[in-house]
Amino acid sequence: MAETKEQKRPLSPFMIGPYYRPQMTSISSILVRITGLALVVGIGLTVAWLLAAAVSEEWFARVDWVVTSWLGKLVYVGSAWAVWYHLLGGVRHFIFDAGRGMDSPTAEKLGWAMVVGSVVLTVITILVASW
């Protein structure tokens, strides 16, 4: 009864796989967190670029070299998808908060809508950027 020995228990994020079957709802939710955190890279690069533009032409040339490199393009295409996915995830939060779409078929459809919607919006963003 009075056992106070610390127990080794599985922690929630590492449940996926061996103990917990991945589902549309859980994976689409985890991706909201990952995209939100990852956006710090694109925002950081953009603020560095803006700061360089405000400081001098020499600094702008240096940061713009990174921004327009293949790595910079990869960051921006990734950030475009991440920002649209995260935004649609937020919209889903508002829908769930209103008490709607909580049944499994609708919740799964909302997850797929986030995936498809974010890809479509990313393609539109790339088209707007390159036209």
């Binding site: 032409e57 921004v67 327009t68 921006y76 935004l87 508002f94 963003t125 790339i126 707007v128």
Partner: peptide, 23 residues
């Protein structure tokens, strides 16, 4: 979140048209 829902789409398209531009 509601504020960003308005701000972010506008800024994404502004940045899409500006990133890669000259000084």
């Amino acid at each position: 979140g509601w504020a960003l829902l308005v701000l972010v789409p506008i800024l994404v398209f502004v940045l899409a048209r500006t990133i890669g531009g000259s000084f």
